[in-house]
Amino acid sequence: MQVKHVMTPDPQTLPLDATLYEAARVMRDRGIGDVLVTYAGRLCGVVTDRDIVVRAVAESRDTALTPLGDVCTAELTTVRPDDDTGKAARLMSEQAVRRLPVVDDEQRPLGIVCIGDLATADGQPGPLTEISKAPPNN
Rank of each mutant, 00 (worst) to 15 (best):
V54P: 02
T77Y: 08
A134Y: 11
A40Y: 15
L65D: 06
Q124N: 11
A56T: 02
G41I: 12
G31K: 07
E59R: 15
V103N: 03
V102P: 01
S93L: 09
D17T: 15
R28A: 15
L36R: 00
E22K: 13
D17K: 14
T38W: 00
Q2R: 15
P136N: 13
Q2P: 10
I115W: 05
A56N: 02
L43R: 01
T66E: 03
L20F: 02
I115A: 14
I131Q: 10
A134D: 08
A24Q: 14
D122R: 12
V37S: 00
A88D: 02
K133T: 12
D82F: 06
V97F: 01
A18D: 01
Q124D: 09
N137Q: 14
T78Y: 01
A74W: 04
P125S: 10
S93V: 12
R30Q: 11
P11L: 05
R108P: 00
I112D: 05
D62I: 10
M7Y: 01
A121T: 07
I112H: 07
L76E: 02
T19E: 12
R80W: 10
K133L: 15
T66F: 00
G33P: 08
T13M: 06
N137I: 05
D84G: 04
T78D: 03
K87F: 09
M7P: 00
L128G: 01
P135D: 03
R50G: 06
E59W: 05
L14V: 05
G41V: 12
L118C: 08
T48K: 04
Q107G: 03
G126D: 07
R55K: 15
T66G: 04
V57W: 05
D29E: 15
D105L: 09
G123S: 10
M92P: 04
D10A: 15
V113N: 06
